[in-house]
């Protein structure tokens, strides 16, 4: 079974995909925690949670759009 070769931009390593998925899982947990806290009337952690979530989003965006070095077939 051989997959057709893709253009270089289309390749994406399993490690990069795994990191992106991990970022999503962390953000999901963070969002659920923040929502629970807000419902409990605690808003003090919102600023920190927003900054942390923003940093994780930047990681996901960089991986998705600006990470050619993580492509698994640089010669293609």
């Amino acid at each position: 079974m051989s997959l057709p070769s893709r253009p270089r931009q289309g390749h994406f390593t399993e490690a990069a995909l795994g990191i992106t998925l991990l970022v999503l899982v962390i953000q999901l947990y963070l969002f659920e925690t923040v929502l629970q806290s807000v419902l409990d009337g605690h808003r003090t952690l919102l600023a920190g949670a927003f900054i942390a979530s923003l940093a994780l989003t930047v990681v996901a965006l960089v991986l998705a759009f600006k990470a050619p070095c993580l492509d698994d077939d640089p010669g293609a």
Partner: peptide, 15 residues
């Protein structure tokens, strides 16, 4: 990569 871009958009949605 397209899937990762979709995930990145979801990530931005959480933020």
């Amino acid at each position: 990569r397209e899937f990762a871009r979709f995930l990145a958009v979801v990530s931005a949605g959480f933020t």
